[in-house]
Structure formats: C-alpha cells, structure tokens
C-alpha cells in the first residue's frame, strides 16, 4: 500500500548537497541534489505529459550526468505523497513521489568505501 511508503525522516543538507530519506523499513537513501534535479519527473523535463513520472527510470541515479551543480532553495511536502523542491534555476514543478524516490534510491556504497 502507498501509505506504508511514507518516509520516517527527511533531511536536506544544502551544505553537502544531498537529500537523505529514512524509510520505515530502516533503509536510508541519500540522493545527491544535482543528480536529483536531473531526474526531475515533471512533464516539462520529461518532454510531455504522456511521458511524465515513470519515463525517466535510471537504473542508478548516480550514473546521471548533471549539466551543472544544482542546489535546492526550498523543499515542501506535497499532500501525503511526495516532495516538491524549488531549485536554484527557478524550476519547481517536479513532484517527487515516495514511489519515485524509492525507485531512485542509490545503491549502498561497497563495503570499505568511506
């Protein structure tokens, strides 16, 4: 059920440039902001409403190549199902649903990696 997907905690670290979400199953996902901007699911970024939301389905968000370094100016909850970041390029129409953020979760770093 979608309700069980709701994060337990959300942290935006503007200094180090990441968004961290802790899920109820104790999994923690840390999303680099620039890559997250690149993965914006809105119709404008994806090229049309018919391709919105699920079209951009990177196997690994860390493989994305952001055009530049992005930061988040503001972050708001949307209803009970997602987040809406306002980026420093002024873009703010992407809704990152919990489902989408779970899908984007970067794989855990290999053992021994700092």
């Amino acid at each position: 059920m979608t309700t069980t997907l709701r994060p337990a905690a959300i942290t935006l670290n503007k200094t180090d440039g990441y968004l961290e979400i802790k899920w109820p199953d104790d999994r923690t996902c840390r999303y680099p902001l620039s890559e997250l901007r690149e993965a914006c699911p809105c119709a404008e970024c994806r090229g049309g409403h018919s391709r919105m939301g699920r079209e951009y389905d990177p196997a690994n968000i860390l493989e994305l190549k952001p055009k530049r370094v992005y930061t988040v100016k503001n972050l708001e909850l949307v209803g009970n199902y997602g987040l809406q970041p306002t980026w420093d390029d002024g873009h703010h129409t992407g809704i990152y649903t919990w489902e989408y953020l779970q899908r984007l979760c970067p794989p855990p770093a290999p053992a021994g990696t700092p």
Binding site: P41, C42, A43, H49, M52, G53, R54, V78, G79, Y81, G82, Q84, H92, T93, I95, T97, E99
Partner: peptide, 20 residues
Amino acid sequence: SDDLFQRLQTLRQSQFELRD
C-alpha cells in the same frame, strides 16, 4: 497498475499546477 499509476501522477500534477 502501471497505467493507473501514470494516470494518478498526471492528476496529482494537474492539482499542483492548478494551485500554482
């Protein structure tokens, strides 16, 4: 379920854009 999720996303986005 994929089709319905896509419709759900579109409706959510429309709500968001209306308010915006």
